[in-house]
Design a protein around this nucleic acid. Structure first.
Lengths: 197, 197
DNA sequence: CCTACCGATCGGTAGG
DNA sequence: CCTACCGATCGGTAGG
């Protein structure tokens, strides 16, 4: 029974993994269960021994990613670093997730609109909460005069979306290393493009 | 005859406009021609008196947007402004397009993968060329010591994607004005978050 | 995990 | 611009 459970879990994991790849490449709506079954190496009907529906796959991917980001945010909130350090840490986490966990993070970010209720509302709420926490960190830094007097929600948007540009990095032929990418991104976001006098 | 032509063009424009709205909301693949017909106010079959196929609509949207950005880039290349001024101008153009022309620009950015050949390759090539031109402007500025020694293609990714965060601004209830949004975005990208000593 | 199959819906066409 | 309809494909189920 333990063995069966383990086997089943690992086949389900394979399905989720292949689904993340296909959802990223073609989008959720344009990926058929027959496409997915083929990439897993079974018939479409057999997928339903491991998952309940196409939407359940998307739910698993989106909430897995959301949980990881929420956990990191909680860790960050409980420490006493300065604002710049916190923001830098958050940025680096997002960048690393986008590099190492590309397919899942990308799908969660781009395809969550296809979630069904009540998962859709749940996901949107988590997203809103996460962004508010991020903005609070920035507002705290503005108050403490550590960062510029910018509109915090706008800065959050910029940073979260900038990171998703790593999609193009993944697909480019002449890639700089992940580490270089991270350092460049952090430098541009924190200190800007302009060379200071 | 002139009248008929005018009428037809304007109905086609309505279809393209409604399609851009729906493609943004639901994605290209998840939008059916029946959905689209309903929002236009005619039967699905009648759409085909104005357009040849669902994909032709996407082509019209994507290449219309691409042409606008290409035209702006050519204008910019032919002037003799400094790097910071050029980059700022480019940023502002992207931001304004994303504010004023939201639906179309968003669809072009997110749904171009569903283009059929040869349009897909054509679009990807235009995209690659545009980014190279953008990166060249940055590299020129690095050489002239006007901007930091960053990886130019990475900076391009960040800026292009950061702008697409305006999607969230559109959907937020407590919006700052478009002008404020633009100023904040430009400031963060050019000068960074950190307050200089 | 497969074969066989379901009802629903898709993009698109014929003909008026 | 509509009615009527096409073949293809969709997500999913029954039964073994």
């Amino acid at each position: 029974m333990a063995k069966t459970a383990r086997k089943k879990a690992s086949k389900k994991d394979l399905i989720l993994q292949k689904a993340a790849i296909m959802f990223r490449e073609k989008g959720f709506a344009a990926t058929s269960m027959r496409d997915l079954a083929e990439s897993v190496g079974i018939e479409a009907a057999s997928l339903y021994n491991h998952i309940r529906s196409k939407n359940e796959i998307l739910e698993a991917i989106c909430f897995d990613v959301a949980n990881r980001f929420n956990t990191n945010m909680e860790l960050l909130e409980s420490n006493s670093d300065g604002t710049i350090k916190k923001v830098e840490s958050l940025l680096r986490f997002h960048i690393q997730q986008m590099i190492e966990n590309y397919e899942e993070v990308f799908v969660s970010d781009r395809e969550w609109k296809h979630l069904d209720e009540p998962y859709l509302s749940n996901f949107q709420n988590q997203r809103r909460t996460y962004r508010k926490k991020f903005a609070s960190i920035l507002e705290d830094g503005i108050r403490k005069n550590e960062i510029r007097n910018i509109d915090a929600p706008t800065a959050v948007l910029i940073m979260l979306h900038a990171v998703s540009g790593i999609e193009s990095w993944h697909r480019s032929k002449t890639k700089i290393s992940g580490k270089e990418l991270e350092e460049n991104m952090v430098m541009i976001m924190i200190d800007g493009l302009r060379k200071q006098g």
